[in-house]
Amino acid sequence: MKRYNHFYRGCLLLLFITIFGGCASTPFSGCSLEDKKSANINVQLGVEYMRRGRNDIALSRLKKALNHCHYSGDAHNAIAVLYGRLGMAEEAEPHYQQAIALMPEAPDIHNNYGQFLCQKSQWDEAHKHFIKAYENPVYRTPEIPYTNAALCALQHQDYATAETYLHKALQKNSKFPRALYQMAHLSYEQKRDKAAREYLQRCLKVAKHTPETLWLGIRIERRLNNRDAEATYALLLRKNFPDSEKTRLLNQSE
């Protein structure tokens, strides 16, 4: 099987990097009440700017949060995520470690750090943190670290482990779009086309089309010799995403 090289695409409805820890309150020993409040406000603003793609303003806000209170686990977590997105791994690493030191039971931080380590090809260490996230009994969304663990396994071509994690994610949340898409793609790669179709259809009941879902649908239906369904997917891809890489691949394949 060829290397699974686009494991972070398809059915992108949920922000996969989670920002805030799962604790009701963050340890702030050493900070005044006013500094705690200012730090929290700046973390919230920084996260919102991250979501809007304004990383420069986000970084400024998160630095202000840490200036107000260096003991904010949420601030360390958020700025670590941001540094990771900016490709600044050396800057991100100490903030992840500080966040975990301050909030060792926060599953969101372990999930984020696991994803960060996976991107650095540190598979074994990454999975240790995913385990700490999804085994936390109070974590409300364990399907996220389960799916991230699957994506990490896919990155180093451990398909059996990936499928196991995806099944566990769907046991926790049968409508989780990212896990459904990844199961559809993995099934397609393994030539289980009817299963791939089923997972993709389930994904599209809870998520909007992306170029990736449409291109996958085209290839599934093409192999199943369903020309009408293939043509429908192709029409939607060309209409809604005319300049996408997947549309270019479609044109080349015909």
Score class of each variant (00 low, 15 high):
residue 239 K to F: 07
residue 135 E to I: 04
residue 133 A to W: 02
residue 42 N to R: 01
residue 34 E to S: 15
residue 253 S to D: 12
residue 110 H to R: 05
residue 216 L to C: 02
residue 193 D to Y: 15
residue 203 C to S: 12
residue 163 E to C: 05
residue 31 C to E: 03
residue 55 N to W: 09
residue 68 H to S: 15
residue 93 E to K: 11
residue 121 S to G: 02
residue 5 N to V: 10
residue 143 E to L: 08
residue 16 F to N: 11
residue 244 S to P: 06
residue 96 Y to F: 15
residue 231 A to H: 09
residue 86 L to K: 11
residue 49 Y to R: 09
residue 151 L to A: 13
residue 245 E to Y: 09
residue 119 Q to R: 10
residue 69 C to M: 10
residue 130 F to H: 10
residue 204 L to H: 01
residue 176 F to T: 08
residue 145 P to Y: 07
residue 53 G to N: 04
residue 19 I to E: 12
residue 212 E to H: 01
residue 28 F to C: 12
residue 196 A to L: 03
residue 76 H to C: 10
residue 5 N to S: 14
residue 136 N to H: 14
residue 157 Q to N: 15
residue 77 N to W: 00
residue 64 K to G: 02
residue 138 V to N: 13
residue 197 R to F: 04
residue 251 N to G: 06
residue 205 K to D: 05
residue 122 Q to T: 03
residue 20 F to L: 14
residue 221 E to F: 12
residue 254 E to R: 15
residue 156 H to V: 15
residue 46 G to V: 00
residue 160 A to T: 13
residue 225 N to G: 03
residue 63 K to G: 06
residue 50 M to C: 14
residue 48 E to D: 14
residue 65 A to K: 00
residue 107 P to E: 05
residue 61 R to D: 10
residue 215 W to L: 08
residue 117 L to T: 04
residue 32 S to N: 02
residue 235 L to M: 09
residue 186 L to K: 06
residue 114 G to Q: 07
residue 123 W to F: 15
residue 43 V to R: 00
residue 166 L to Q: 07
residue 107 P to Y: 04
residue 82 L to K: 04
residue 164 T to R: 12
residue 101 A to W: 00
residue 191 K to G: 00
residue 64 K to H: 06
residue 245 E to G: 05
residue 94 P to A: 06
residue 119 Q to E: 13
residue 123 W to L: 11
residue 149 A to Y: 05
residue 118 C to R: 05
residue 114 G to S: 07
residue 57 I to M: 06
residue 206 V to H: 02
residue 243 D to E: 11
residue 98 Q to I: 01
residue 118 C to S: 09
residue 96 Y to G: 08
residue 232 T to F: 09
residue 19 I to H: 12
residue 217 G to Q: 01
residue 228 D to W: 05
residue 124 D to Q: 11
residue 170 L to F: 03
residue 174 S to F: 06
residue 87 G to P: 04
residue 162 A to N: 07
residue 93 E to V: 09
residue 248 R to K: 13
residue 204 L to Y: 01
residue 158 D to C: 01
residue 184 A to T: 08
residue 204 L to K: 02
residue 144 I to D: 03
residue 106 A to L: 03
residue 207 A to D: 01
residue 200 L to P: 02
residue 247 T to Q: 08
residue 122 Q to F: 08
residue 215 W to S: 10
residue 190 Q to V: 01
residue 36 K to R: 14
residue 223 R to D: 14
residue 18 T to Y: 02
residue 123 W to Q: 13
residue 12 L to F: 06
residue 180 L to P: 09
residue 131 I to L: 12
residue 65 A to E: 01
residue 245 E to K: 13
residue 250 L to S: 08
residue 83 Y to V: 13
residue 30 G to Q: 09
residue 7 F to H: 12
residue 85 R to L: 14
residue 157 Q to C: 03
residue 2 K to M: 10
residue 75 A to Y: 02
residue 243 D to M: 05
residue 43 V to H: 00
residue 219 R to V: 06
residue 198 E to S: 14
residue 246 K to L: 09
residue 95 H to I: 01
residue 28 F to W: 06
residue 221 E to L: 04
residue 185 H to L: 12
residue 12 L to G: 13
residue 153 A to W: 00
residue 201 Q to S: 10
residue 133 A to L: 07
residue 138 V to I: 10
residue 106 A to V: 03
residue 128 K to N: 13
residue 224 L to P: 12
residue 205 K to M: 05
residue 214 L to Y: 03
residue 222 R to A: 15
residue 113 Y to A: 04
residue 43 V to G: 00
residue 106 A to P: 04
residue 215 W to K: 03
residue 67 N to Q: 14
residue 111 N to R: 07
residue 210 T to C: 00
residue 62 L to P: 14
residue 222 R to G: 12
residue 228 D to F: 11
residue 185 H to S: 04
